[in-house]
Structures are given as structure tokens and as C-alpha cells.
Simulated assay, not measured.
Amino acid sequence: MDHQTYQQHSLHGSDRAWVETNCYIDVWIEVLHSLKLNPVACMSMVFALDFDGDQWTFYKPPHEDLFALYGIDVQELNVWRSLLENACTQLQRGRLVLTEADSFYLPDTSGTDYRSNHVKTTIAIQEIDLEQQRLGYFHNSSYHQLSGEDFVKTFRVGAPHDATFMPLFAEFVRLDHLHYADDQALAIISISLLAKHLARRPKHNPISLFMPVFIADVERLKTEGLAAYHAYAFATLRQLGAGFSIGASYLRWLQQSLVMADDAAEQLNTAAAHFEAISNATKTLLLKTARAVMGKKPVDLTPGLIEMAQHWQSGIDQLTIFVGEQSRANGKVDG
């Protein structure tokens, strides 16, 4: 693969409200895309998003969903030698390796973390050139390459033994059972996965629960500064907004991929519009919050959150009706 000519998936297009979501799902979008698979089909897990007290769910495509849709089998990589040695073994067997890495040595983060901040992130290793000390990897919204000192530091090449060093978490991706299906076949499988994730949705409106915590957090952030705000925004607003933006895209893909009655199509269309509204409102809230934190002036953020909570409830209600009707039409009984 050539990192200079690689064409990223449309979910990472410049026209998106959220070009990036979180490191794990962004990597999977591009890994699936590079394998000529449709990553949109595995995005139904976003409808189980919840506010978890100090963050929004860091959503990931479940491994069982990846196998059901694409035949992709993900297993934990036991890094019992070194990451470099174990990764090379897996790549030689025709597999990919997903691993935590330090953004400090990832050139694609230039302008943010590269050579300035030590931040844990997830990359997918596609190619290792030992002789040239070069690594080809997926990260965030595209495919990249690093070499030289970045390679040495990423893999701790030649580092003295350190009994206190703990290997980072890694996985390998088996492609032995990889299979391809058109969008209609994928959508049929994906509807059952959607029902599973929708059944796991929060029992109470999570945006309503988030609102008082968020208002209090903004006041605290005014004393902590912009760096604290950026970390907070990634854990909360970005996961919320980007998640439902992907959810809206997923529902519109489902609508286009299946033959369905007009009322079912309208349910999906209406639900997608509500989740898009959450995405857009969160983007606005992100900017307002930044100004509030930096300006330290009182800003009433409540009206936007109330509207977002209403959109969540309406979108979930429409989606619940759709899934229920599809289950009955297929002769299934909801539990």
C-alpha cells in the first residue's frame, strides 16, 4: 500500500461534521475499507451509547459483529517476546496487528501530539520493513508511514531490558474466513445486530442525565484551562456528536440497501434526522463551551442540551418502532 496515494473512506471525508471519532473505530473504518469491505454495516453499536458519569461510551465495533458481517476474527495478541517480533510473525501469516502506541512517535499527529505529547492511541499495522526500519500503519482517518527514530522508539528497538515495562495491549486480525457480500446481504445481517444493540440502549435519556453534570463541569473547566477542556471534550462531546453522526449515516445506508415499505423507510429517515440533529447541536455546543471556558463568562448552555435530549428520545422511539416491526415481519419475538 502507498500512504501517499491512499484514498480514505467517505466516513472520514472532509465534508463530514466529525472527520474523526475515536482512534479504535477510525482504524477499523479504514482497515475494512482497505479490504474492500463496507464499514458502515458494523456501526449499529452506536445506538447503545450512554453517559457513564465522567465520559460517553468509547464505542467500538464488537468482535462478534465483525465476524458475522465479514468473517473477520479478532484475537488478543500475547506479546510474550517483543511487539516487533510478535507482530512480524502475525504479518507473515497474512494477518493485521492492532496495537496501542504512543502518538509522540506517530508523524500523522504532527501539529497535535507528534514529538510534543505522550498519548496512548490505537494503530493497525499493515506492513513492517525490518531492513529499512519502516512501518505502514492505519491511524485515525487514513493510512500512514513512519521510519527511522520513530520506528525505533515505537518498537523499543535496542532498548535495555526494563523489568518495569509493561507491554501495550495488542490484537491480531485473522482473515482466513473473510467473505464478501453486497449491501443488501450485509443489511439483512446488520438489522439483527441493530436489534441487539438497541436492546442495550440506556434505560433513561442519557443526554438528560449528562446535562447537570456537564453544566457543573464547564464551571470547573474555567479554572483548569484549555488543555483540560480538550481532554474533557474528547471524552464527552466528541464521542456523543461523532457517534450519532455515524449512526445517522448507518440508518441512511440501511434505508438504501433494503427493499422496505414506505412507512419503514420513513421511520429510518426520521430517526436519522434526529441523530443528525444531535451531531450538529453537539458541534455547536463544542464551540460554545470552548468560548465559555476561555472567556470565563456565564453562558447558558441548557437550551441546546434540552433540545438534544428531545432528539435522542424521538430518534430512539422511531428506531424502536422500526426494529419491532422488522422483527415481527421476520417472525421473531422480541424479548
Rank of each mutant, 00 (worst) to 15 (best):
V97R: 03
Q4M: 02
P298D: 12
R174Y: 02
A17W: 12
M308I: 05
A187Y: 15
L49E: 07
I306Q: 15
K196M: 09
I72L: 10
E307F: 02
D176H: 10
C23W: 02
P39T: 06
E266N: 04
G315P: 04
M308R: 05
S10L: 09
F47A: 06
A235F: 04
L285Q: 04
N22T: 03
T236R: 09
T284Q: 14
F234I: 11
A265T: 05
A87W: 09
A277R: 10
I128H: 13
A170Y: 02
I207M: 04
I25L: 10
L106H: 07
V119H: 05
L178C: 00
L186P: 04
F169I: 04
G324P: 01
V323H: 08
L130A: 14
I278W: 01
A277L: 08
S116L: 13
E76K: 00
H197C: 02
L198M: 15
A292G: 01
W312K: 11
K36C: 03
A277N: 10
D129K: 03
E64W: 13
L146H: 03
G247I: 11
D263K: 11
V27Y: 11
R328L: 15
L226N: 15
V119F: 05
S34L: 03
K36Q: 14
R134S: 06
D217H: 00
C23D: 11
I191R: 13
Q326G: 07
L49F: 06
K222N: 03
S116R: 12
N38T: 07
I215M: 10
D176P: 06
G94M: 10
A281Q: 12
N205W: 06
L168E: 00
F165H: 14
Y24C: 11
T57N: 14
V157K: 14
F165C: 11
I128P: 10
T270C: 01
D73W: 02
R328W: 09
E127I: 10
D26Y: 15
I306D: 12
H230C: 00
A242S: 15
K288N: 13
A195E: 15
L301I: 05
